[in-house]
């Protein structure tokens, strides 16, 4: 499958040439295909925020290339600008970027910048609002009247409305309660299924990524250290722990059971899979 977004030997150095010089990412190679759901995981300061800001041309690489559909996004200012519509980026705490008088206008900001026709903007705003579960009557409210979770949905809808081929979200669930987290992630998964677009989910929670992503990329100390399916990544539990990331709780339970001599796959990472394995161990007699 032809990759949609490729990164070659990407390096970014902050404050180059001063005593404060610091490389946030060094020599990163990465490619993502259409329709993939990738989890990007790493510690604070591992370089993940710097990395994703290169993918839509917000930061210019110190060295290396970023290509969208095979074309270097820094070829001309126009192409850089257009890349931002193809690669949508939702920042951390995106609710702090709302500024319009109504929710509708705020969601329409991106599509308007694309220069679309009025009807097309209207269609996109309503569709994006639907994806994140914004009710029709909220569209005419001021975004500042909404609750924290609702504001965040408005901000995410603002990026979805541009219908980006690649959607990147930087910790979209930070600071939300568990129910809020779950519903935002469920909406994202639904969006991914409905649209079939590429999604990159940045997070520091292994659980979150394990349940949703088909592929996990682990960043540590300015480099990509692991890249593979959740099974492959979680089977390297020792290395993950050395980085200080750890594995999902379910995997930890599975590992213990495996060590205790039970025939359980130690790289199991969903509750459902562990349940099935344990039930089959009981000879299919069903739960007690």
């Amino acid at each position: 499958m032809e990759p949609i977004l490729t990164v070659e030997n990407l390096t970014h150095t902050y404050s180059a040439g001063t005593p404060f010089e610091r490389s946030a990412i060094r020599g990163i190679d990465f490619a993502v295909g259409p329709g993939e759901f990738v989890g990007v995981i790493g510690h604070t300061g591992s370089g993940k925020s710097t990395f994703i800001q290169h993918l839509n041309g917000l930061l210019k690489p110190t060295a290396g290339r970023v290509c969208f559909r095979g074309q270097d996004i820094w070829t001309s200012p126009r192409i850089t600008h257009e890349t931002r519509f193809h690669v949508g980026l939702v920042f951390q705490y995106p609710e702090y970027q709302l500024f319009e008088e109504t929710v509708y206008q705020d969601v329409a900001f991106g599509p308007k910048n694309m220069g679309l026709a009025q009807e097309e903007i209207d269609r996109r705003v309503r569709e994006a609002a639907g994806f994140v579960g914004l009710r029709e009557e909220w569209l005419d409210k001021s975004p500042f009247e909404l609750s924290g979770g609702q504001k965040r949905r408005v901000a995410i809808a603002g990026v979805l409305a541009m219908e980006p081929e690649v959607l990147i979200l930087d910790e979209p669930t930070a600071g939300l309660d568990p129910a809020g987290c779950e519903s935002i992630l469920a909406e994202l998964r639904q969006y991914h299924r409905a649209k079939g677009n590429t999604v990159l989910l940045v997070s520091h929670s292994m659980e979150e990524v394990a349940c949703h992503a088909g592929r996990i990329v682990v960043l540590d100390n300015a480099r990509i250290v692991m890249d593979g399916t959740p099974r492959e990544v979680f089977s390297r539990a020792k290395e993950l722990e050395a980085i200080g990331l750890g594995v999902p709780e379910i995997t930890r339970v599975a590992m213990r059971l495996h060590e205790a001599g039970l025939a359980v796959d130690p790289a199991t990472y969903t509750l459902e899979a562990l349940r099935t394995q344990l039930l089959s161990l009981r000879g299919g007699r069903g739960p007690c």
Partner: peptide, 13 residues
């Protein structure tokens, strides 16, 4: 800086 980046990501110029 952060807000400017966020709005640029939505195509602000």
């Amino acid at each position: 800086d952060k807000i400017m980046s966020a709005q640029k990501a939505r195509g602000a110029d």
